[in-house]
């Protein structure tokens, strides 16, 4: 049997095997939508291939990976706004693809309720991929994907639901949990005096919104300096007037790689974010700022951007 199968490398890979999404003790429970989502070796591999496929755009230049690059934690740093088809500029700052299994909703306004339907938005957006799902399916059918679908789903049928499921499975595997703070949470490391001071300051000044190990409560808030242009944020999807100009609390994990910050990329540095708080009367001394930034540096995961 071994002799017969040895000639095909596929025989050694179980494409239906589940891919483990780690659950660090410090992380909250996973988001409800993720309970029935089970990435497999085959679907993740297919998703990765689709993620980098530029043919899935109206002018053949834009892949998901154009604006979600691993070396910057799958964000599009240092761009304030990303470039889509025909050089068009996107509406908001591109968020990093990380720890999505714990996010209850997606986009700065939380308009998307499940990771599997997330890819539809950039596909059909006229300044991003500018391509209908029917055209995406046609493009994938024209390309060399039949074997990938067979491995992922057991047959070669190429459909829109399968494409977006595979993309979701791939993105869900992007877990950043190997930063220095994660070592601290696992009791493998201690905090320096400055880091301890920064932690206290952070919890006092920022921790009510940037809460927990993921540094987000995933609700919608108006931050000093977050009103930029006419983008009304959460109101767009909720139609509740009090939600105007509110945006989802972003995780600060991997901030070192993902500047600029804010939904419009309006802050080039964390110092600028703190400066906006300063103008609101939340004064921090230079030493306090330094301690705060030192503590926040613990949330940068160099392994995530290189593996």
């Amino acid at each position: 049997m071994c002799i017969l199968t040895a000639c095909t490398p596929d025989a050694r890979v179980d494409y239906q095997a589940l891919v483990d999404i780690p659950q660090p003790d410090s992380f909250p429970e996973r988001a409800p939508w993720s309970v029935n989502v089970h990435p497999m070796v085959g679907t993740v591999a297919l998703g990765q291939k689709l993620f980098s496929d530029r043919s899935l755009s109206s002018d053949g230049t834009v892949s998901c990976g154009n604006c979600h690059r691993q070396e910057v934690a799958f964000s599009d740093a240092p761009e304030k706004r990303s470039t889509g088809v025909n050089g068009r500029t996107g509406g908001r700052n591109t968020p990093p693809v990380q720890n999505l299994a714990w996010m209850p909703s997606f986009m700065w306004d939380g308009g998307i309720n499940h990771l599997e339907v997330m890819p539809i938005a950039p596909f059909v957006n006229e300044v991003e991929h500018n391509i209908s799902l029917k055209e995406v399916v046609r493009s994938v059918r024209r390309s060399d994907y039949r074997r990938d679908f067979k491995r992922a789903f057991g047959d070669t049928s190429i459909t829109a639901p399968r494409i977006i499921v595979a993309l979701a499975h791939f993105m869900m595997t992007k877990v950043s949990s190997q930063s220095p703070i994660d070592s601290f949470y696992r009791r493998e490391r201690l905090l320096s005096n400055a880091e301890r001071t920064g932690r206290v300051l952070f919890n006092e000044q920022c921790g009510s919104c940037h809460s927990g190990a993921l540094l987000s409560d995933f609700t919608y808030k108006s931050h000093p300096g977050s009103r930029v242009g006419s983008d009304v944020g959460r109101f767009l999807v909720s139609q509740v007037p009090s939600d105007s100009f509110q945006f989802k609390t972003p995780s600060l994990r991997n901030w070192k790689y993902t500047a600029p910050y804010g939904h419009a990329g309006q802050w080039a540095t964390l110092e600028e974010v703190l400066q906006d708080w300063h103008t609101q009367g939340e004064y921090l001394t230079a030493d306090e700022k330094a301690s705060l930034l030192q503590f926040l540096s613990l949330f940068n995961d160099s392994e995530f951007i290189t593996l």
Partner: peptide, 10 residues
């Protein structure tokens, strides 16, 4: 969703 009856952004 390829039936074009799904809101992509909401």
């Amino acid at each position: 969703p390829a039936n074009d009856m799904f809101w992509s952004w909401n």
